[in-house]
């Protein structure tokens, strides 16, 4: 199993400007809450699955993918079970399953999947430093934009440190027992203190490393592979914008 992280490749999605991808991600994440048609939702889902398959052959090789689909399934089951509106299609052990229940189940579980898959696709195809650069192009000072890169660098390290501290505690007889809240708070306190100590040490070393390599010397910086907002980015953003307009027009007319 692999962790969801940027995976370099030569696909069209990789080649898009991070700003384009980020706009699509934001636009889709907001618009999706206005889609009430399960068919349209399913169409979007299929498009995303194709997007995924161009980036990786087996999406289930990533950590969290199975959990995502299982969660979507659970959401669907809950919707089917508890939505009582509409006409009853069948009755299982006293629980009536209605047509609206099934519609809501498909709609909400696929909506959940689309949002998660979109974010995953963005992470898989966007280098954090390119993302930081895109922010800089948008006028955000690179010191702030670079926080994305440094936090992505530190998060896995912090998680390893946390595991190690937790294991060291277990070796010293620590058991997190919910029946003894006082003891549990004490152990958690000690755990957080040890992880924070380690984190501060690492941040200090990272800061030294960055500053002693001229970070912050100028208000701007160059990039080895500067990104350009291409004609293709413009076309894709334009099409997406027109698509959204068309969708709202159909919605206004009551077609979807």
């Amino acid at each position: 199993m692999k962790k969801i992280a940027y995976s370099p490749a030569n696909t069209m999605l990789h080649a898009l400007h991070p700003f384009t991808k980020f706009s699509l991600l934001l636009g889709l994440s907001v618009s999706i809450f206005f889609i009430d048609s399960p068919i349209l939702m399913f169409f979007l889902f299929i498009v995303l699955v194709f997007g995924f398959l161009t980036v990786c052959r087996n999406p289930f090789a990533y950590f969290g993918m199975r959990t995502t689909f299982l969660t979507a399934l659970m959401i669907g089951i809950i919707q089917c079970t508890f939505v009582k509106q509409g006409s009853e299609l069948t009755n299982i052990f006293g629980l009536s399953i209605t047509n609206i229940g099934i519609q809501r189940a498909v709609l909400i579980s696929i909506r959940f999947l689309v949002i998660i898959l979109c974010s995953y696709l963005f992470i898989l195809t966007t280098s954090p430093s390119d993302f930081a650069f895109a922010f800089m192009q948008m006028g955000v000072p690179y010191r702030y934009a670079f926080m994305i890169v440094t936090s992505m660098r530190l998060v896995p390290i912090l998680s390893i440190d946390g595991e190690r501290v937790n294991f060291s505690q277990r070796l010293r007889g620590v058991r997190y027992d919910f029946r003894k809240p006082g003891e549990m708070i004490l152990h958690m306190n000690i755990y957080i203190g040890a992880v924070l100590y380690s984190l501060i040490n690492r941040i200090n070393k990272l800061a030294i490393s960055m500053e002693s390599r001229s970070f912050g010397r100028y208000a701007t910086r160059t990039y080895q592979n500067p990104l350009h907002f291409t004609f293709r980015d413009g076309i894709i953003l334009g099409i997406a914008f027109l698509f959204v307009l068309f969708f709202y027009y159909l919605k206004w007319k009551g077609f979807v």
Partner: peptide, 8 residues
């Protein structure tokens, strides 16, 4: 590239 980029 990090240091070199910082040095513009």
């Amino acid at each position: 590239a990090f240091g070199l980029e910082n040095k513009c």
